[in-house]
Design a protein around this nucleic acid. Structure first.
Lengths: 262, 262
DNA sequence: AACAGGATTTGGCCATACCATTAAAAAGAA
DNA sequence: TTCTTTTTAATGGTATGGCCAAATCCTGTT
């Protein structure tokens, strides 16, 4: 007799699976609310406890958002980028991924994104890039603003690539690179003028829709950044891992207010 | 009176947060088990219900694995790549990311990974690449084996880059590209001989530790694949999204056995 | 030593009750 | 009427207690 072992899935997993598939199939459009917990329980034949566990799974996965109170309930939403970023951040922390790997990954992604941006950018996106560039020039002396605008410009480039996946990846990495507290202010003045110049040239390539130039210039830009960052880390800490630095940043963001569902 | 609104986090979130931080801080090393649910409840002052929800959160995030039975419990593990891949797959499905974006992302990642592989590959990894290449040549007439070995070779390249993050990204994308049932067998014979040749040349670059050559050749290889894939999709389906194709593949994997905690 | 069977530990699941939060509905005041 | 306040209902959040199912350990038997 060849009887295969019978696998007994958990009730909450089954329900979560069913709900997830139906949501992704479009049965519940974004913004609509699932039946309340008591109804789900009675209709599924499960207890409210199991239903709640299933909802918790979907909540962690970022496809529903639970609101309390009258007219509350489980609001359907698209798997948000935050969930993906949390998952990635967790992976990075858990595996103690080296800063070097983060920088390498960024070096892999960003030049290609710049090339795509050159191909597909809209006029609005181009205008946005040039606006951010002017802001960057204006904030030459204000290191905090410089940092912020700089990050925004990079994001705008990726956005102009019209590739959601690159954007999601980049976002996740970028957060983990920049949140590293020890990298917070390692931009010296002469570096900043260089950054402004190379941004200008990348903007120009994107404006002219010159994809190869955008690729090359961005490649040089990210490589230079990576080199400076690695130097900085080498001189400012022994063997610092991304895990440690993000933890430092994390502490700040999670001790005020509600600790976001991570 | 300026009273800021008081934010009341959920009990299970607080507990999950605490446990997660302590696990990531190394307080529970990999493989060790957390206290059982009843103990966690009594020590935390929460009910077992809340404890269970907290554990469920950690389980979905892939940092614990729950085993039933005596000597069971919540086994601590590193956030596994599967969790990251599930998260990414969910994002791809939920946002109906186009196959084109997947291919573009792969084109961004793989050449860089090949360049890194050329720099950092060990002798064992090189041997593995060459072994896989011989297997690929041998499976010239067996399209199914060819496919499998082909994928393994690509994975081996990324592995040799010694960059966990690139590996995780690539894995996640690769699954979503290859699982597309309509791409299952679009390798024609003449294409296969071309694939073997370019793999040989990439292997050669990696052996010689010639990073720029590895980058260039892999770039051409992935670009060619992307072009063929897009052509194939254009002729074989109207407006097919990655979502639809992965769904088809998904159905197969989830209807047999226990539906993996997604 | 090998096996069988019971005891024990642990998660899985359920039913019920009550609390906390939110918004709708009703009541009251202008 | 129209605005404000109070009440009420709907909904998620939490706790308690119990029982079942699975996995392992232990003990007695052969």
């Amino acid at each position: 007799m060849l009887i295969e072992p019978v696998i007994v899935p958990k009730a909450s997993d089954m329900l979560a699976h069913q709900l997830r598939e139906r949501i992704l199939a479009g049965e519940f459009h974004e913004g609509s609310v699932l039946p309340n917990e008591r109804d789900l329980a009675s209709h599924s034949g499960l207890s409210r406890t199991s239903v709640r566990e299933a909802l918790r799974i979907l909540e962690v996965q970022g496809i529903i958002a639970v609101k309390t109170g009258r007219n509350g309930g489980s609001v359907v939403q698209r798997p948000n980028r935050e969930a993906l970023e949390r998952s990635l951040t967790l992976y990075i922390r858990g595996h103690r991924v080296r800063m070097e790997s983060l920088l390498q990954t960024r070096e892999a992604i960003e030049p290609s994104a710049a090339a795509l941006a050159a191909q597909y950018r809209s006029e609005e996106e181009l205008a946005q890039l040039e606006l951010l560039h002017r802001q960057l020039e204006a904030s030459y002396d204000d290191i905090a603003t410089f940092r912020t605008v700089n990050i925004e410009w990079h994001l705008a480039v990726i956005t102009a690539s019209h590739n959601e996946l690159l954007l999601a990846f980049y976002n996740a990495i970028s957060d983990n690179i920049h949140e590293a507290s020890s990298l917070k202010d390692f931009h010296s003045v002469d570096v900043r003028s260089g950054v402004i110049e190379i941004h200008r040239r990348i903007n120009e390539a994107i404006r002219k829709q010159d994809a190869p130039a955008a690729f090359r210039r961005m490649q040089r830009h990210t490589a230079a950044f990576a080199e400076r960052a690695m130097d900085w880390l080498a001189t400012h800490s022994e063997q610092e891992t991304a895990e440690e630095t993000t933890r430092a940043a994390k502490r700040i963001t999670t001790t005020r207010g509600r600790p976001a569902r991570e």
